[in-house]
């Protein structure tokens, strides 16, 4: 029985994860390493990588800031509509990214108030970087908040009050007490945000227009290559993205293990 269960897990793991990855790797190099290299270094691919990195970076910074702030406000403040906000935060998990993109299209369309406003100001939102950032923010917003809320609840306010009685001002309290207590939650939230932002496709596809060398991210480039029957390019870029995600996860695990041993060693002295 035990063997059967373990066997099922292995089978599941192989078919769903390892198999596709190996097949993709195989296809990437099916025409030699030269072809792989050509595909991931052609301008369209490089532009896709750069755009993905740019969006991911901006989204990460915004999420770190607004996510932390939202979590703090939700846990610490009593206000009208708190339950509503808290419930709606998970909405991006439930809503298809395509719908999220579509909502942005409607919101910033030429006939709406916002669309007219930005049109008058000659700021291009749709089919440009701003809309792609907004779409990615929408789908990644819950990660940071959901990581930090439980941490803030367990932290409570006593440590912060203790710091105040010792003379610490509000900024010092935040930097020396609150932030250190949240750091691992922030690292996890950031990792999930980055992973999700790199992989985002649906919402970005809808709002970007998928314009070559302008609004085509790495995932859009994979899709486009696939549609254009350039399987080597699709596989090569996909494999690269996969490697990046894997590297991020690995670094996270190593950092976590190291932090834990530091604490343990310090205690053993």
């Amino acid at each position: 029985m035990r063997r059967v269960l373990i066997g099922i897990v292995w089978f599941y793991f192989l078919v769903l994860l390892v198999g596709p990855i190996l097949y993709m790797a195989n296809q990437s190099f099916s025409q030699g390493i030269e072809a792989f290299w050509t595909e991931i270094s052609r301008p369209e691919a490089l532009h896709g990588f750069a755009l993905t990195a740019e969006i991911t970076g901006i989204v990460l910074v915004l999420n770190l800031f607004f996510g932390t702030m939202t979590a703090l406000v939700l846990v610490r403040q009593q206000f009208w509509g708190r339950g509503l906000v808290s419930g709606v935060i998970d909405l991006p998990f439930a809503v298809s990214p395509v719908i999220a993109g579509f909502m942005l299209i409607l919101l910033f369309g030429p006939d709406t108030l916002l669309g007219t406003f930005f049109g008058q100001a000659r700021v291009k939102v749709l089919f440009a970087l701003p809309a792609m950032i907004l779409a990615t923010l929408f789908v990644t917003f819950p990660f940071m908040v959901r990581e930090l809320t439980p941490l803030l609840q367990t932290l409570g306010t006593e440590e912060e009050e203790a710091a105040r009685t010792l003379g610490a001002g509000e900024w010092q309290v935040f930097l020396k007490v609150t932030l250190p207590a949240l750091r691992w939650g922030m690292v996890y939230g950031a990792t999930l945000t980055v992973a999700r932002a790199i992989g985002e496709f649906g919402a970005v596809l809808v709002v970007s227009g998928n314009i070559l060398l302008l609004t085509q991210t790495a995932t859009l480039h994979i899709y486009q290559s696939y549609v254009d029957f350039n399987y080597v390019a699709a596989n090569a870029v996909a494999l690269t993205l996969l490697a990046v995600s894997f590297a991020i996860l690995t670094i996270l695990e190593i950092a976590k293990a190291r932090a834990e041993t530091t604490v343990a060693e310090a205690g053993a002295q």
Partner: peptide
């Protein structure tokens, strides 16, 4: 404080 409120980190 009753529950110490030591800085854990």
């Amino acid at each position: 404080f009753q529950h110490y409120a030591l800085f854990k980190h």
